[in-house]
């Protein structure tokens, strides 16, 4: 599959899950790591940082997330239109471009926009994308695919040590 076709398949998947199904995108497959970041990439990275601020994470991780989200927008004109219009609205609400403002000022404008479709889409889709990044998995303590490592049978599937043993049901 070409990257474009993969992106399209991914978007169909997202539409189909409607955020209610336990499904995890392997999104790194959509990132074009070698291309220089576009303005949209930069905007979306800053947005992800506002939405999901993890102090321990490198800015590059948000950059990667922004690129993937921008890639999804490239594959879907409707999504792209929504994001671009949302960006313009953030710029219009306040002095100077949203990206040039302080983190606190960026947040204040976002807070006023939580009910817009733009915000809801970047929050939902952005969350799925961002929390699928291997660097983020490592931060939150998720270990991901396990077949290649022989499962969790010998890697702590039952290592919890702060609970009483369950008895078998009666």
């Amino acid at each position: 599959m070409t990257r474009r076709a993969r992106r399209r398949a991914f978007l169909r998947w997202l539409a189909a899950t409607g955020l209610t199904l336990p499904a995890l995108p392997a999104l790194h497959a959509f990132a074009d790591n070698h291309a220089a970041p576009t303005d949209l990439d930069v905007f979306l990275a800053a947005l992800l940082q506002q939405l999901f601020p993890h102090p321990a994470l490198d800015a590059a991780v948000y950059g990667q997330g922004g690129q993937i989200l921008a890639g999804a927008a490239d594959a879907d004109p409707g999504l792209r239109g929504l994001i671009v219009a949302g960006w313009a609205a953030l710029d219009a609400a306040g002095d100077g471009p949203w990206l040039d403002r302080s983190p606190g000022a960026r947040r204040a404008v976002l807070e006023a926009s939580v009910d817009t479709p733009f915000f809801q889409v970047v929050r939902g889709l952005g969350g799925l994308i961002f929390y699928s990044l291997p660097e983020v998995w490592a931060l939150v303590g998720y270990q991901g695919p396990s077949f290649e490592k022989g499962g969790y049978l010998a890697r702590g599937f039952d290592d919890i040590d702060w609970l009483p043993e369950p008895e078998h049901g009666d």
């Binding site: 955020l19 995890l24 601020p53 939580v114 969350g127 799925l128 983020v136 998720y142």
Partner: peptide
């Protein structure tokens, strides 16, 4: 559930610190 699904489900619409 994995973290991505959890991000959609655990606090729908939640964001920030």
């Amino acid at each position: 559930a994995g973290p991505a699904f959890l991000s959609a489900l655990i606090d729908p619409g939640g964001w920030g610190p």
